Amino acid sequence: MRIPGKQLDQAVVNGIINAEQAKALQQFLATQHTGPHFDFTHVLYYLGGLLAIGAMTLFMTLGWESFGGWGILAIALIYALVGLKLANLFASKGYQVPAALCAAFVVTLTPLAVYGLQQGLGAWPDDSSYRDYHRWIQWHWLYMELATLAVGAIIAWRYRFPFLIMPVAVTLWYLSMDLSAMLTDGDFDWQLRKLVSMYCGLLMIGLAFWVDIRARHNGDYAFWLYLFGVIAFWGGLSLQQSDSELAKFGYFCINLLLIGVGAVLVRRVFVVFGALGSCGYLGHLAANVFKDSWLFPITLTFIGLLVIYLGILWQKHEQQLTQQLHACLPAALQELLDNRQL
């Protein structure tokens, strides 16, 4: 937790603490803060790390095909060894963010290594190249994805950096899309793909919640799983087609539920996508159902003001209501929510 210096100064002015205590508290918090935060040093860390990761994933060129399958595998393994060496070196010196980025770089090399192995063995099923892995949905990416999940789990268990869940979460998202291609034997079925994305997203959200509970006393290992789980679920849900106004209202209610879940778990990704879906439904009402009604904008304005009033009431009684709600929850979930609100 970081407290701005102005707030500490104001606490001194108000007589809450004295100047010596403020200085000691600021020094203590500086030593306790070990996680990543937004400053120029960390911007450089992530910029460099993501450039290296992107070079071996999104920005891979066809020139690498000239090395052949075994050459690609060998280069990927060499890069992985260098990445692990750097991760160990940085971790031993206390540079956790660079260590996490180097370890994540190793995980992102796994699809390339598997691709090279399949090419070398002559087991690659078509004329597609590795660069298509991040662009197209294909059933035969599954081998690369499953291997990446396995390597990601091992690396995350070894180094215990929350950022290592990012490549795992991205791979699960890819897997949710490629599963539909496998189920249809490569045929394009848009409706099935939307359903698979929606249900796989729900599974990822469930996995994220389980990880959140298990790791509640440690780092935020669930962030990336929540992010891509919500993207997969909300994307599949929002692309569903229906002429029923009742179904559209159900979609609106689900998005309101997402906002509520985000508020309870203190996860902004639920709130952001829930708000987008809710606004989309209200836009549908304004453009189609009530397009000729002068009463609809007025009613919506009053609803908005009512929501603001409810927010004021919640702010007044937040502590009492929060305590009452928390008392109804399991102990593990209470600890999770208490940690999130620190």
Rank of each mutant, 00 (worst) to 15 (best):
G201C: 05
L202N: 05
M204F: 08
I205A: 03
I205L: 10
G206V: 03
G206R: 01
L207R: 01
A208V: 04
A208Q: 04
F209N: 01
F209T: 07
F209R: 03
W210E: 02
W210T: 06
W210A: 14
W210L: 11
V211G: 04
I213F: 05
I213R: 12
I213L: 15
I213E: 05
I213A: 02
I213V: 13
A215M: 07
R216P: 05
R216I: 02
H217C: 05
G219K: 11
D220I: 10
D220K: 11
Y221G: 08
F223L: 09
F223Y: 09
F223N: 13
W224D: 02
L225W: 11
G229P: 09
V230F: 13
V230Y: 07
I231P: 06
A232T: 07
A232K: 04
F233K: 10
F233P: 14
G235Y: 14
G236C: 01
G236H: 00
G236M: 00
G236L: 00
L237P: 06
L237W: 15
L237T: 02
L237I: 07
Q241G: 01
D243C: 03
S244T: 02
L246E: 05
L246R: 03
A247N: 05
A247F: 15
Y251D: 12
C253G: 04
C253K: 01
I254K: 01
I254H: 02
I254S: 04
N255V: 12
N255D: 15
L256W: 12
L257N: 06
L258E: 08
I259L: 11
I259C: 14
G260V: 01
G260L: 08
V261D: 00
G262Y: 05
A263L: 14
A263D: 07
V264R: 09
V264K: 11
L265A: 13
V266L: 10
V266T: 07
R267P: 08
R268I: 06
R268Q: 09
V269F: 12
V269M: 12
V269I: 15
V269Q: 13
F270I: 09
V272M: 07
V272H: 01
V272L: 09
F273S: 03
G274H: 08
G274W: 11
G274R: 08
A275M: 15
L276G: 00
L276R: 00
L276H: 01
G277S: 09
S278E: 08
C279V: 15
G280I: 02
G280W: 03
G280V: 03
Y281C: 05
G283K: 00
H284I: 04
H284Y: 15
A286K: 09
A286P: 09
